[in-house]
């Protein structure tokens, strides 16, 4: 089963991954198969003339996680959303009627509605690039080398199992094929110690 690895310790939120994905798949404004979330928290203590920060901020780059338990496939009324043998979750344009149930069900907002076509669209881990022996566009794009992909067992052997940090949902919901190297300030899931700082950019 294929999945992604993301190194949160080196990501500066530049979004080259997002733009490379949009270029590769000819995605219009409003359709973002890969999104970069800024999670920020902390405060200042002001005393007399001094102002002392206790602040954190880090980014999480997320596309479809090609989950072990993909709720998008379960809610799809037309069987358009299916899981391929390699584990990648795929939407069949011929069958999709654009009802957007999958969009509502997915806790990662991976399926994205393309208003121009009236259909759902999503990351296929750049199937044609993989067939040609190349990395997915986002992985090859990252200036910080924060992204990797491959069989999830290999990724976990190489990078560990962690994937439960704010602002991501509880991984038990869909069991994502995703491994994250946590930022030094990564906040455990469900703590709500910070907030998503760029809600309109994702």
């Amino acid at each position: 089963m294929l999945g992604f690895y993301f190194d949160s310790t080196v990501c500066n939120g530049c979004k080259a991954c997002n733009i490379a994905c949009k270029d590769k798949h000819d995605l219009p404004v409003g359709v973002n198969w890969r999104r970069v979330v800024e999670y920020t928290g902390g405060s200042w203590s002001v005393s007399g003339n001094t102002a002392v920060p206790s602040v954190f901020s880090y980014y999480t780059s997320i596309s479809c996680n090609h989950c072990e338990n993909p709720v998008c496939t379960q809610v799809c009324p037309t069987t358009a959303m299916t899981r391929r043998e390699d584990g990648t979750v795929f939407v069949d344009d011929e069958k999709c009627v654009g009802c957007r149930y999958c969009e509502w069900a997915c806790p990662y907002s991976a399926p994205q509605f393309n208003a121009e076509t009236g259909h759902m669209t999503k990351c296929d881990l750049c199937a044609d690039y993989r067939d040609a022996g190349q990395d997915p566009a986002c992985v090859a794009a990252c200036p910080s080398r924060a992204l990797d992909w491959g069989p999830i067992e290999e990724l976990r052997a190489k990078y560990g199992n962690a994937n439960a940090f704010e602002p991501l949902p509880d991984p038990e919901i869909t069991r994502p094929n995703l491994v994250i190297k946590p930022h030094r300030d990564a906040q455990p899931s469900g703590m709500g110690t910070g907030h998503i700082a760029n809600p309109k950019e994702i």
């Binding site: 530049c14 979004k15 080259a16 997002n18 733009i19 490379a20 270029d23 090859a140 794009a141 990252c142 200036p143």
Partner: peptide
């Protein structure tokens, strides 16, 4: 020399 978000939007 991987281009950043700017150059990748050249199209």
């Amino acid at each position: 020399i991987r281009a950043c978000v700017r150059g990748r939007n050249m199209r």
